[in-house]
Protein backbone atom coordinates (compact mmCIF):
# COMPACT_ATOMS: atom_id res chain seq x y z
CA UNK A 1 0.00 0.00 0.00
CA UNK A 2 1.24 3.44 -0.81
CA UNK A 3 1.59 5.45 2.31
CA UNK A 4 -0.27 8.68 1.92
CA UNK A 5 0.32 10.20 5.27
CA UNK A 6 3.03 12.59 4.15
CA UNK A 7 1.92 16.13 4.63
CA UNK A 8 3.10 18.25 1.77
CA UNK A 9 2.36 21.74 2.85
CA UNK A 10 1.91 23.89 5.85
CA UNK A 11 -1.75 23.77 6.91
CA UNK A 12 -1.82 27.52 7.28
CA UNK A 13 -1.54 27.97 3.53
CA UNK A 14 -4.47 25.77 2.77
CA UNK A 15 -7.81 27.39 2.37
CA UNK A 16 -10.56 26.37 4.74
CA UNK A 17 -13.66 25.14 2.92
CA UNK A 18 -15.94 24.18 5.77
CA UNK A 19 -15.85 25.88 9.10
CA UNK A 20 -18.20 25.34 12.01
CA UNK A 21 -18.61 27.70 14.92
CA UNK A 22 -20.08 26.40 18.18
CA UNK A 23 -22.18 23.88 16.32
CA UNK A 24 -24.78 22.15 18.48
CA UNK A 25 -27.37 19.67 17.38
CA UNK A 26 -30.23 18.26 19.40
CA UNK A 27 -32.44 15.30 18.63
CA UNK A 28 -35.30 16.27 20.93
CA UNK A 29 -33.53 16.56 24.29
CA UNK A 30 -30.47 14.57 23.28
CA UNK A 31 -27.44 16.67 22.48
CA UNK A 32 -25.82 14.87 19.57
CA UNK A 33 -23.25 17.55 18.77
CA UNK A 34 -21.62 19.56 21.52
CA UNK A 35 -19.96 22.85 20.55
CA UNK A 36 -18.11 21.53 17.55
CA UNK A 37 -15.54 23.89 16.07
CA UNK A 38 -13.76 22.50 13.06
CA UNK A 39 -11.93 23.94 10.05
CA UNK A 40 -11.84 21.54 7.16
CA UNK A 41 -9.20 22.36 4.56
CA UNK A 42 -9.99 22.29 0.87
CA UNK A 43 -8.63 19.92 -1.81
CA UNK A 44 -7.77 17.32 0.81
CA UNK A 45 -9.25 14.24 2.37
CA UNK A 46 -10.47 14.79 5.89
CA UNK A 47 -11.50 11.79 7.92
CA UNK A 48 -13.76 11.93 10.92
CA UNK A 49 -13.34 9.00 13.25
CA UNK A 50 -14.76 7.94 16.57
CA UNK A 51 -16.77 5.18 18.19
CA UNK A 52 -20.30 4.57 16.95
CA UNK A 53 -22.86 7.05 18.19
CA UNK A 54 -20.25 9.77 18.69
CA UNK A 55 -21.98 12.11 16.24
CA UNK A 56 -19.60 11.80 13.29
CA UNK A 57 -22.35 11.00 10.77
CA UNK A 58 -24.55 13.66 12.30
CA UNK A 59 -21.78 16.22 11.82
CA UNK A 60 -21.30 15.16 8.21
CA UNK A 61 -25.00 15.40 7.50
CA UNK A 62 -25.00 18.98 8.76
CA UNK A 63 -22.72 20.07 5.93
CA UNK A 64 -25.40 19.64 3.28
CA UNK A 65 -28.31 20.02 5.68
CA UNK A 66 -29.51 16.45 5.35
CA UNK A 67 -30.51 16.69 9.00
CA UNK A 68 -33.41 18.83 7.84
CA UNK A 69 -35.06 15.56 6.88
CA UNK A 70 -34.81 14.17 10.38
CA UNK A 71 -37.78 15.10 12.47
CA UNK A 72 -37.11 17.00 15.71
CA UNK A 73 -33.47 17.69 14.88
CA UNK A 74 -32.50 21.22 15.93
CA UNK A 75 -29.25 22.86 14.90
CA UNK A 76 -27.54 25.85 16.53
CA UNK A 77 -24.35 27.65 15.67
CA UNK A 78 -22.76 28.41 12.34
CA UNK A 79 -21.51 26.35 9.42
CA UNK A 80 -19.59 28.46 6.96
CA UNK A 81 -19.06 27.04 3.52
CA UNK A 82 -17.37 29.34 1.02
CA UNK A 83 -18.13 32.38 3.10
CA UNK A 84 -21.82 31.72 3.67
CA UNK A 85 -23.47 30.45 6.80
CA UNK A 86 -25.52 27.61 5.36
CA UNK A 87 -27.71 27.40 8.44
CA UNK A 88 -29.32 30.71 7.47
CA UNK A 89 -32.96 30.41 6.50
CA UNK A 90 -32.46 31.82 3.03
CA UNK A 91 -29.90 29.17 2.05
CA UNK A 92 -30.80 27.63 -1.29
CA UNK A 93 -30.77 23.95 -0.34
CA UNK A 94 -30.92 22.81 -3.94
CA UNK A 95 -27.81 24.76 -4.82
CA UNK A 96 -26.10 23.76 -1.57
CA UNK A 97 -26.63 20.07 -2.20
CA UNK A 98 -25.36 20.44 -5.73
CA UNK A 99 -22.17 22.02 -4.42
CA UNK A 100 -21.89 19.65 -1.45
CA UNK A 101 -22.65 16.16 -2.68
CA UNK A 102 -23.13 13.12 -0.51
CA UNK A 103 -22.36 9.42 -0.80
CA UNK A 104 -24.15 7.18 1.65
CA UNK A 105 -23.37 4.11 3.67
CA UNK A 106 -25.30 1.68 1.52
CA UNK A 107 -25.14 2.20 -2.23
CA UNK A 108 -28.52 3.79 -2.94
CA UNK A 109 -28.84 3.76 -6.70
CA UNK A 110 -32.35 4.48 -7.96
CA UNK A 111 -34.53 1.75 -9.42
CA UNK A 112 -33.81 3.17 -12.89
CA UNK A 113 -31.33 2.50 -15.67
CA UNK A 114 -27.67 3.44 -15.19
CA UNK A 115 -28.19 6.21 -17.72
CA UNK A 116 -31.22 7.62 -15.93
CA UNK A 117 -29.51 7.40 -12.55
CA UNK A 118 -26.87 9.78 -13.85
CA UNK A 119 -29.24 11.91 -15.86
CA UNK A 120 -31.49 12.59 -12.87
CA UNK A 121 -29.11 15.12 -11.29
CA UNK A 122 -28.44 16.91 -14.57
CA UNK A 123 -32.13 17.13 -15.17
CA UNK A 124 -33.20 18.49 -11.81
CA UNK A 125 -30.51 21.16 -11.94
CA UNK A 126 -31.32 21.92 -15.59
CA UNK A 127 -27.62 21.70 -16.33
CA UNK A 128 -27.65 20.25 -19.82
CA UNK A 129 -30.45 19.80 -22.29
CA UNK A 130 -28.69 18.62 -25.41
CA UNK A 131 -28.56 14.83 -25.70
CA UNK A 132 -24.94 14.72 -26.83
CA UNK A 133 -23.81 16.93 -23.97
CA UNK A 134 -25.65 14.75 -21.48
CA UNK A 135 -23.96 11.70 -22.94
CA UNK A 136 -20.57 13.38 -22.68
CA UNK A 137 -21.17 14.32 -19.07
CA UNK A 138 -22.27 10.79 -18.26
CA UNK A 139 -19.24 9.36 -19.97
CA UNK A 140 -16.82 11.62 -18.14
CA UNK A 141 -18.59 10.92 -14.84
CA UNK A 142 -18.27 7.19 -15.35
CA UNK A 143 -14.67 7.54 -16.51
CA UNK A 144 -13.73 9.37 -13.33
CA UNK A 145 -14.95 6.44 -11.25
CA UNK A 146 -13.48 3.84 -13.62
CA UNK A 147 -16.79 2.41 -14.70
CA UNK A 148 -16.98 3.55 -18.30
CA UNK A 149 -15.16 0.58 -19.81
CA UNK A 150 -17.31 -1.91 -17.89
CA UNK A 151 -20.65 -0.24 -18.42
CA UNK A 152 -20.54 1.68 -21.69
CA UNK A 153 -22.55 -0.99 -23.51
CA UNK A 154 -25.17 -1.49 -20.84
CA UNK A 155 -26.22 2.01 -19.84
CA UNK A 156 -29.86 1.00 -20.25
CA UNK A 157 -29.60 -1.80 -17.71
CA UNK A 158 -31.18 -1.32 -14.33
CA UNK A 159 -28.58 0.02 -11.94
CA UNK A 160 -29.67 -2.33 -9.20
CA UNK A 161 -28.35 -5.28 -11.21
CA UNK A 162 -24.75 -4.07 -10.69
CA UNK A 163 -22.44 -5.35 -7.99
CA UNK A 164 -22.37 -3.39 -4.73
CA UNK A 165 -18.99 -1.92 -5.60
CA UNK A 166 -20.20 -0.81 -9.03
CA UNK A 167 -23.30 0.63 -7.42
CA UNK A 168 -21.23 2.63 -4.94
CA UNK A 169 -19.01 3.89 -7.76
CA UNK A 170 -22.12 4.87 -9.67
CA UNK A 171 -23.32 6.78 -6.61
CA UNK A 172 -20.02 8.66 -6.58
CA UNK A 173 -20.33 9.35 -10.31
CA UNK A 174 -23.85 10.61 -9.74
CA UNK A 175 -22.45 13.21 -7.35
CA UNK A 176 -19.39 14.10 -9.45
CA UNK A 177 -21.44 14.73 -12.55
CA UNK A 178 -23.00 17.76 -10.85
CA UNK A 179 -19.54 19.32 -10.47
CA UNK A 180 -19.58 19.74 -6.69
CA UNK A 181 -16.83 21.39 -4.64
CA UNK A 182 -17.18 19.11 -1.66
CA UNK A 183 -18.07 15.42 -1.48
CA UNK A 184 -19.24 14.00 1.83
CA UNK A 185 -18.83 10.26 2.25
CA UNK A 186 -20.68 8.56 5.08
CA UNK A 187 -18.90 5.23 5.66
CA UNK A 188 -18.86 4.60 1.91
CA UNK A 189 -17.20 1.19 2.19
CA UNK A 190 -19.09 -0.38 5.07
CA UNK A 191 -21.25 -2.47 2.73
CA UNK A 192 -18.30 -3.58 0.58
CA UNK A 193 -15.80 -6.43 0.79
CA UNK A 194 -12.13 -5.65 1.61
CA UNK A 195 -10.93 -5.69 -1.99
CA UNK A 196 -13.70 -3.41 -3.20
CA UNK A 197 -12.92 -1.20 -0.21
CA UNK A 198 -9.30 -0.85 -1.27
CA UNK A 199 -10.34 0.03 -4.81
CA UNK A 200 -12.77 2.69 -3.60
CA UNK A 201 -10.01 4.12 -1.39
CA UNK A 202 -7.74 4.28 -4.41
CA UNK A 203 -10.47 6.21 -6.21
CA UNK A 204 -10.75 8.65 -3.31
CA UNK A 205 -7.02 9.39 -3.55
CA UNK A 206 -7.46 10.36 -7.18
CA UNK A 207 -10.54 12.43 -6.50
CA UNK A 208 -8.83 14.47 -3.77
CA UNK A 209 -6.95 16.37 -6.46
CA UNK A 210 -10.19 17.95 -7.65
CA UNK A 211 -12.57 17.89 -4.75
CA UNK A 212 -12.66 18.42 -1.02
CA UNK A 213 -13.50 15.07 0.49
CA UNK A 214 -14.85 14.52 3.96
CA UNK A 215 -15.14 10.89 4.95
CA UNK A 216 -16.73 9.44 8.05
CA UNK A 217 -15.44 6.02 8.97
CA UNK A 218 -15.34 3.69 11.92
CA UNK A 219 -12.34 2.00 10.35
CA UNK A 220 -9.17 3.64 11.71
CA UNK A 221 -6.89 1.96 9.19
CA UNK A 222 -9.02 3.40 6.43
CA UNK A 223 -8.74 6.87 7.91
CA UNK A 224 -4.96 6.43 8.14
CA UNK A 225 -4.74 5.21 4.56
CA UNK A 226 -6.85 7.77 2.76
CA UNK A 227 -6.91 10.98 4.73
CA UNK A 228 -4.67 13.99 5.03
CA UNK A 229 -6.44 15.37 8.09
CA UNK A 230 -8.29 13.56 10.82
CA UNK A 231 -10.79 14.63 13.41
CA UNK A 232 -11.55 12.45 16.40
CA UNK A 233 -15.00 12.71 17.94
CA UNK A 234 -16.29 11.36 21.19
CA UNK A 235 -19.78 11.78 22.70
CA UNK A 236 -20.71 14.61 20.38
CA UNK A 237 -17.50 16.57 20.94
CA UNK A 238 -14.63 17.09 18.58
CA UNK A 239 -11.76 15.97 20.79
CA UNK A 240 -8.91 16.60 18.42
CA UNK A 241 -8.31 17.69 14.87
CA UNK A 242 -5.06 17.73 12.95
CA UNK A 243 -2.90 16.17 10.28
CA UNK A 244 -3.54 12.47 10.03
CA UNK A 245 0.14 11.76 10.52
CA UNK A 246 0.22 13.63 13.77
CA UNK A 247 -3.08 12.26 15.10
CA UNK A 248 -2.01 8.70 14.55
CA UNK A 249 1.58 8.95 15.69
CA UNK A 250 1.55 11.67 18.27
CA UNK A 251 -1.99 12.49 19.43
CA UNK A 252 -2.36 15.48 21.71
CA UNK A 253 -5.14 14.08 23.85
CA UNK A 254 -5.10 11.01 26.06
CA UNK A 255 -8.59 10.05 24.81
CA UNK A 256 -7.46 10.05 21.19
CA UNK A 257 -4.46 7.96 22.03
CA UNK A 258 -6.61 5.42 23.86
CA UNK A 259 -9.02 5.17 20.97
CA UNK A 260 -6.31 4.84 18.38
CA UNK A 261 -4.47 2.21 20.31
CA UNK A 262 -7.71 0.28 20.64
CA UNK A 263 -8.53 0.63 24.35
CA UNK A 264 -12.15 1.39 23.44
CA UNK A 265 -14.18 1.84 20.28
Amino acid sequence: MVNFMVSLSNPMEIETTIETKNLNLYYGDFRALNDVNIKIPGRNVTAIIGPSGCGKSTLLRCFNRMNDLTENAKVQGKIIIEGNNILELETDLIFLRKKVGMVFQRPNVFDLSIYNNLKFGLRIHRMLSDKDHIMQAIQSGLEQVNLWQELKDKLRKNARSLTLEQQQRLCIARVIILKPDIILLDEPCSALDPIATLRIEELLRILRQQYTLVIVTHNMQQAARVSDYTGFMYLGQLIEFGETNQIFTNPGEKLTENYISGYFG
Partner: peptide
Amino acid sequence: TYKEAAFGLGAT
Protein backbone atom coordinates in the same frame (compact mmCIF):
# COMPACT_ATOMS: atom_id res chain seq x y z
CA THR B 1 -32.71 5.49 0.89
CA TYR B 2 -33.93 6.50 -2.57
CA LYS B 3 -35.46 9.57 -1.09
CA GLU B 4 -32.32 10.38 0.84
CA ALA B 5 -30.20 9.95 -2.28
CA ALA B 6 -32.47 12.18 -4.34
CA PHE B 7 -32.59 14.90 -1.69
CA GLY B 8 -28.84 14.60 -1.34
CA LEU B 9 -28.49 15.43 -5.01
CA GLY B 10 -30.56 18.55 -4.51
CA ALA B 11 -33.91 17.31 -5.77
CA THR B 12 -37.12 18.88 -4.53
